[in-house]
Amino acid sequence: MSILAQAFSWINLRFLLEGLWVTIEVSLISIVLSFIIGLVFGIIRYSKIKFISGIVGFIIDIIRNLPLLLLFFFTYFALPQIGLRTSPMSASIIALVVFESAMLAEIVRSGILAVNKGQMEGARANGLTYWQAMRHIVIPQALFKMIPPIVSQFISLIKDTSLATVILLPELLYHAQIIYGQNTNYMLPMYLIIAVMYFVVCFALSVVAKKLEKRFG
């Protein structure tokens, strides 16, 4: 029992909470940016503009089918070669945004597809242009349908942030590894407590997602 008390000392807990905060901070920034980019790319894919839709679709397919771990390496090691100095923090955010906006673009596209075709036709018949109809009629409705899957993506984003330990982002898992690296008796307590921390955050969000699904779905 004394090992547990030592492992969960205030100093260690504070260090872990700092890590958890980085995890949440990186995830929040990433999901907001990904949503904006995903929305744009999703609409481009849906609207079948010549060439552009094809190229965007191609890029999205490549990104969606690569392990996220690889993207962390590329943003941390390759981007600076073309003049963009990245820190573990910015490299992680860029990697997550690239990956998640590809995922969200697909969600946006299928969200728009799920809106009744008649709505667009009706709007057009009432004299709105294609883009006006998109903006005022189709997308607002599609957004409601997208909310639950976006929250689920946010949950995977929080879990995926743990992969950024590989480029030494000071997030929750990395901080736990630093603590038990200095005293290996803390391995079990560290894995237990970070599992609880991840679980609480992700489970709470998944409950929210379910509630939203009932309301909008």
């Binding site: 898992l173 391995m187 894995y191 991840y198 489970f203 998944s206």
Partner: peptide
């Protein structure tokens, strides 16, 4: 719910370093 809400890497590391102890 348990395994959906914990990162895969945490589960894997648990089996690699904690479980054998």
């Amino acid at each position: 719910e348990l395994f959906r809400n914990i990162p895969l890497l945490v589960i894997t590391m648990f089996f690699y370093v904690v479980f054998p102890q």
